[in-house]
């Protein structure tokens, strides 16, 4: 059996950064890249299934340019069997819908028994890619999964989802399905630098959208559901540290309330 794990090389932005000249993203000079935190967990979930059962293949896939190869090397170092990267300049600045369409095409080709994606990305945080991918494929899905019980070959998986207020929902999902995995479902392993170096000898399959049967209209500008118009820092909120004895602090708070309420 096969598990497909879509991953993202996410941006890690420095504390003090500048925006790109067009104002629609952070200047890449201030960005480091690393495997999306959520994907650490989805990959770990796949690897744990692989280790507990015989004959499971774990395939990591990403949509991105050369710079994103590192994410795949990390997956290979941790124990993924294969890695696939899809890229074409048309995809640059793509939104989650386009990415999901590409991933769905990969899934069609790979025919996995399970897709384990991260719930969201640590940089943009749309939480949309995995779910959209399921929609494009017409597969069942469950989001924000915090526990997974699945035996290879089974027709269903039992999953637990995290709801608001600490509530959990246990459900049975028909497989194959797309599950988006939440942080904390497991303890991800560390990818040692030696391991990452050794993973360099494993070839990464590089595909173009074309080879997946995707046309420009499926993935180009017109296919996007949204466009980034602007990125900016909101004006700083007002905050003040109130010092002094409790009585002094209370007096100061009263003064602020009066000032703001105009009373």
């Amino acid at each position: 059996m096969k598990i497909l794990v879509p991953v993202k090389q996410a941006a890690l932005v420095e504390d003090d950064f500048e925006l790109r000249d067009d104002g629609r993203d952070v200047d890449p000079d201030f960005v480091d890249l690393q495997l999306n935190e959520w994907d650490d967990y989805s990959l770990e979930a796949a690897l744990q299934l692989k280790e507990a059962n015989d004959g499971i293949e774990v395939v990591a896939v990403t949509v991105g340019d050369d710079d994103t190869e590192d994410a795949l090397r990390t997956c290979l170092a941790k124990g993924a069997d294969r890695a696939i990267r899809i890229w074409d300049d048309v995809i640059a600045d793509a939104d989650p819908l386009v990415i999901a369409r590409v991933l769905a095409a990969v899934a069609q080709r790979e025919a996995p028994d399970l897709v384990l994606a991260g719930t969201q990305s640590s940089d943009l945080g749309f939480s949309a890619t995995g779910v959209a991918m399921a929609a494009f494929m017409g597969w069942p899905h469950a989001a924000v999964v915090v526990a997974l019980d699945y035996a290879p070959g089974a027709a269903t998986a039992i999953v637990e989802r995290e709801l608001e207020g600490g509530l959990r929902e246990r459900l049975e999902v028909d497989c194959p399905a797309v599950l988006t995995i939440q942080l904390g479902i497991n303890t991800p392993r560390y990818a040692s630098l030696r391991g990452i170096k050794q993973a360099r000898s494993i070839p990464i399959e590089e595909l173009s959208p074309d080879e997946l049967g995707l046309e420009d209209q499926d993935i180009g500008e017109q296919a996007r559901g949204s466009r980034v118009r602007e990125m900016y820092l909101p004006d700083k909120g007002q905050a003040e540290m109130i010092e002094g004895t409790p009585a002094e602090q209370a007096a100061r708070i009263a003064a602020i309330v009066k000032e703001v309420m105009g009373g």
């Binding site: 941790k78 303890t187 991800p188 392993r189 560390y190 990818a191 391991g195």
Partner: peptide, 9 residues
């Protein structure tokens, strides 16, 4: 242990 990926988060 590090090669196995086993360490404190």
């Amino acid at each position: 242990l590090v090669e196995q990926g086993e360490m404190d988060p």
